[in-house]
């Protein structure tokens, strides 16, 4: 069962296409990493799911309801979209009380979410005096206020210190343990690698990968080759490009994110051209390297 499903979702802003036929799914009870470079359409997609902007074409369901019935599913959704938006002249607690009153949530819930994000000791201070990390935690508290089934968080780790990030990671796992679904947009791909069990990768408004994080990571490897001369370098680059994979250079070494097994094909083709001393090291690629490979047009 999917908490979110989209089919061919399209959104234009003037002549610019922000979301371009997006088809993706988010399984219930998962932490889904939502990845994409700036301008890939992540935030617009989140806004579409939250009923803040209307799609031009396509369809979607959230918690079993069509996107057009957002009044029916939004009471079960908590969201932090883009930078946390607060009233700087009000205290953190009053900021939450404003939303609690609007949503019809009990005042006691405000204290609970302040405890959860560890902001109780500064709750009476003006939100305008908060650091970026504290505002971020206040934003997460706002998202948690309705005790949502689906939590949509856009860059929640922005501005958090290392301890804050570890705390956030623990909180997300705890929430998943309670059966909640979390859609987590982040630029910190290393962080997503730690917590996400499902990934949706976006590029130019389209999904380039939608599936389990484990599958993606196990299907692909990174080859590290240290060529002995320019001839070897040129040969490896030519064979790799012909196979449709990208080569990056790092401190003289060639790095290739590719499907498992390509190392054998590369070695065989190199031997056929007379190069027999090519040393290929196979490494587990990071999510970041996989993402870079995917947005350059490769498929797992």
């Amino acid at each position: 069962m999917n908490a979110i499903e989209t089919h061919g979702l399209i959104k234009h802003f003037g002549k610019r296409t922000a979301v371009d036929g997006l088809t993706m799914s988010v399984p219930e009870g998962s932490i889904t990493g939502f990845i994409g470079p700036n301008g890939a359409g992540k935030t617009t997609t989140l806004r579409l799911l939250l009923g803040l902007v209307r799609p031009d074409a396509g369809s979607a369901t959230v918690l079993g309801h069509s996107l057009t019935e957002f009044e029916r599913y939004l009471p079960r959704v908590g969201a932090l979209v883009e930078a946390p938006a607060v009233y700087p002249g009000l205290s953190g607690r009053t900021n939450l009380e404003v939303l609690a009153r609007l949503g019809g949530h009990p005042r006691s819930r405000v204290g609970e979410v302040l405890e959860t994000v560890e902001l109780s000791d500064r709750a009476r201070d003006r939100a305008g005096t908060y650091s970026l990390g504290m505002k971020q935690r206040l934003g997460v508290a706002m998202a948690l206020l309705p005790d949502p089934e689906l939590l949509i968080l856009d860059e929640p780790a922005n501005g958090l210190d290392p301890l804050g990030i570890i705390g956030m990671r623990g909180m997300l796992r705890l929430l998943r343990g309670q059966g909640k679904t979390i859609l987590l947009s982040s630029h910190l791909l290393g962080e997503l690698e730690h917590v996400a069990d499902w990934l949706v990768m976006l590029h130019e408004g389209k999904s380039v990968y939608c599936g389990t994080a484990r599958e993606l990571l196990s299907q692909r490897v990174e080859l590290v080759i240290e060529p002995e001369d320019d001839l070897q370098r040129e040969l490896v680059t030519r064979i790799t490009n012909a196979a449709g994979h990208a080569v990056t250079t790092e401190e003289g070494a060639l790095r290739i994110a590719c499907p498992a097994g390509f190392d054998k094909a590369l070695d065989r083709q190199a031997r056929e051209t007379g190069v027999t001393n090519l040393t290929i090291r196979v490494e587990q690629p990071s999510l970041e390297q996989l993402f870079l490979a995917l947005v350059k047009g490769q498929r797992p």
Partner: peptide, 18 residues
């Protein structure tokens, strides 16, 4: 301007009521 509208409309999606 503050961006608080998006918080409010997620909690109260019936815009006219808000």
């Amino acid at each position: 301007t503050l961006g608080t509208l998006r918080n409010l409309l997620v909690l109260q999606p019936h815009r006219l009521r808000w």
